[in-house]
Design a protein around this nucleic acid. Structure first.
Length: 269
DNA sequence: CTGAGATCCTGTCTGC
DNA sequence: TGCAGACAGGATCTCA
């Protein structure tokens, strides 16, 4: 489900828990994308939370010695609930319990994961991640250098988390539409000015999506229960056969790497 | 090393 | 209404 803007929105919704004490974690189902560490509950009991942040699509919860890493996968979401409201929903897998409230991790498809580690940067799932797209270092020269060395098409390259993090299926399609670049273009065929258009488009799309609370297509809700309204700004994603907003030609849907990809054949060359 | 394809899981929607 | 098949916002693993 969640790409960078949805994860960022979720982090902002729970960062009020910074400086709170995590009384305990209760795990109802350890069988997430990876089995949750047996020691995890014991290591986090009654620890203060120093910082809640985001790296790529991971939510990082910094405790004293350890940090928690939470990935929402395709269908994961958090829900803040009063502790005394003791109800459950189907697919509630983990509860983070505080004095008066709790944060619940719900994930239908269980592609999400929860990890504990001493040094985030050394964790194998983090250490190989690529550049943050909203950082200054993500510029046209950087992208052009990556493209020049890749045999992937540009859509696949943008979604490769080892190269650029946070861009998923929705925002890859949307960014390429804004940049007027065909998703099937071999990355190595792109010149510097096309790379410039792409990085501008990615930054613009992600920033706007964060501002609007992410994209709720079906079931994304932030931890405070709010929907994301970026859906209203989608130009191509999920709009097969609808008229292109620039030229009115029908939006086309194709499959790239087993993922639906939407674009305008006329505008995106 | 790179890249293509299968795979984990559950739910919903479409078409016959 | 039932049922098969496609599809869903991710990303790792295996194999060539």
């Amino acid at each position: 489900m969640p790409e960078l803007p949805e994860v960022e929105t979720t982090v902002r919704a729970i960062n009020g828990f910074e400086n709170s004490t995590l009384e305990k974690i209760v795990i109802h189902n350890r069988n997430l994308r990876w089995k949750v560490d047996k020691e995890l509950e014991a290591l986090v009991a009654n620890k203060k939370i120093y910082k809640i942040s985001r790296r790529a699509k991971y939510i990082i919860i910094k405790l004293d010695v350890y940090s928690l890493m939470l990935h929402l996968g395709m269908s994961g979401k958090l829900r803040i609930q009063n502790k005394k409201d003791n109800f459950f929903k189907k697919h509630d897998h983990v509860e983070f319990i505080f004095k008066d409230k709790k944060i619940i991790f719900n994930d239908v498809r269980r592609f999400g994961s929860l990890h504990i580690t001493k040094n985030i940067n050394h964790h194998p799932l983090i250490s190989n991640l690529g550049i943050e797209p909203l950082s200054r270092d993500f510029n046209k020269d950087y992208l052009h250098a990556i493209c020049a060395n890749s045999k992937l098409n540009i859509k696949k390259l943008l979604m490769d988390q080892k190269k650029i993090v946070g861009v998923g299926n929705i925002y890859a399609s949307e960014s390429l539409f804004l940049a007027s670049v065909n998703p099937l273009r071999p990355a190595m065929s792109l010149n510097v000015s096309e790379c410039y258009e792409i990085i501008k488009a990615i930054k613009k799309v992600l920033k706007k999506a964060i501002k609007m609370g992410g994209t709720t297509l079906k079931d994304f809700y932030s931890a405070d229960g709010s929907e994301g309204y970026f859906k209203l700004n989608l130009n191509v994603y999920g709009l097969e056969k609808k008229p292109c907003k620039k030229c009115k030609h029908q939006i086309k849907r194709i499959v790239i790497g087993q993922r639906s990809t939407f674009f305008c054949e006329i505008c995106q060359i």
